[in-house]
Amino acid sequence: MLESFKRFFVGQAPAPEWADVAEWAGKRSLHFKRVHEGEGFVVDGRLDDRPWRMEWGPPQRAYIAGRELRIRMELKLPGDLQMLLLSKPLMDQLERQTYENFTEGLQTQIDTSSPEEMRWLVMFPKLNLNGYRVLRSHFGMVASAPPTGLAWIEGPLGLHLERALGTLLQNDPPFVLMTLRGRAYLRTQLVDPDPASLAIALDLFETAVAQALRVAQHLGDSAQEWPSTGSTAWQNFDDSKPR
Rank of each mutant, 00 (worst) to 15 (best):
residue 153 I to W: 02
residue 62 A to R: 13
residue 8 F to E: 12
residue 79 G to I: 02
residue 35 V to A: 04
residue 228 S to A: 10
residue 53 R to C: 12
residue 151 A to P: 01
residue 49 D to C: 05
residue 66 G to L: 07
residue 91 M to D: 04
residue 67 R to Q: 13
residue 56 W to A: 03
residue 206 E to Q: 15
residue 48 D to C: 11
residue 18 W to Y: 15
residue 66 G to D: 04
residue 129 L to M: 07
residue 12 Q to Y: 14
residue 65 A to E: 11
residue 233 A to T: 11
residue 243 R to E: 03
residue 120 W to D: 08
residue 241 K to C: 04
residue 151 A to M: 11
residue 76 K to H: 12
residue 175 F to G: 02
residue 43 V to H: 02
residue 159 L to K: 15
residue 7 R to E: 10
residue 28 R to N: 07
residue 65 A to W: 04
residue 113 S to C: 05
residue 116 E to V: 11
residue 112 T to S: 07
residue 99 Y to H: 15
residue 30 L to A: 04
residue 135 L to Q: 03
residue 57 G to L: 07
residue 46 R to Q: 14
residue 88 K to I: 02
residue 219 L to G: 03
residue 14 P to D: 14
residue 62 A to N: 12
residue 98 T to E: 05
residue 158 G to Q: 04
residue 95 E to Y: 01
residue 113 S to D: 13
residue 120 W to M: 05
residue 215 V to E: 00
residue 72 R to H: 15
residue 175 F to Q: 04
residue 48 D to F: 12
residue 154 E to F: 07
residue 39 E to C: 06
residue 224 Q to A: 12
residue 3 E to S: 12
residue 167 T to P: 00
residue 114 S to P: 01
residue 199 A to E: 15
residue 37 E to R: 14
residue 140 G to T: 03
residue 176 V to K: 02
residue 52 W to N: 03
residue 40 G to R: 09
residue 195 P to W: 08
residue 225 E to S: 06
residue 98 T to W: 02
residue 158 G to I: 08
residue 101 N to A: 11
residue 100 E to M: 12
